[in-house]
Design a protein around this nucleic acid. Structure first.
Lengths: 82, 82
DNA sequence: TTTGTCTTTATCCTATAGGATAAAAAGAGA
DNA sequence: TCTCTTTTTATCCTATAGGATAAAGACAAA
């Protein structure tokens, strides 16, 4: 199922973003505001891929700048260590 | 200028996509059709970031599958050698 | 010169992605 | 238990991203 594949892709991206967000000490609201989004609810739904919401390329670009990580980190395999 | 930065980011992504597209021997139309887009004009505008069009995350995901390259390749520095 | 392929130019239409709101739930500390 | 912070649940509204169309331009081969 191709839709399942891209859903899993968005899931992984969200998980990676969350990992770096926590590592850098940001709450969902703090990071949302830093990338220009007032709605922590929308941010939460993107991070967790709920109600059809997920991060888009512009979000990831901004998040990578705010968290000071390379955007490629968001596309790497989830590591169970850390 | 923040808008300039993300414009440059989209530009770079487009250039990288073009590089791999040519390396793999696809025309713009061929690749557009492979990722589900009937409009070579729209594809061209995304690749060249014209009229406000650029690739989105879903496009890049599909292009990486079709071209069989890691999506991270699209975010790397443009290399003048090839 | 003609033809075919590939790409670009420019604009229009609309479905949905983007993002808001409100309230509830979860979790932790006092 | 209470309070505060953080996150989640669910849905609504609309501006624009997505993608189409048509025609023109560029280039190469015959």
């Amino acid at each position: 199922m191709k839709e399942k594949n891209i859903y899993d892709f968005y899931k992984k991206v969200g998980e990676n973003v969350k990992k770096f967000r926590l590592t850098k000490g940001y709450s969902q609201l703090e990071l949302a505001l830093e990338i220009g989004i007032k709605s922590v609810a929308f941010y939460s739904n993107c991070e967790n891929v709920r109600y059809g919401k997920h991060f888009n390329l512009e979000h990831l670009y901004k998040i990578s700048k705010v968290l000071n990580v390379n955007i490629c980190e968001f596309f790497k395999e989830i590591t169970s260590t850390n």
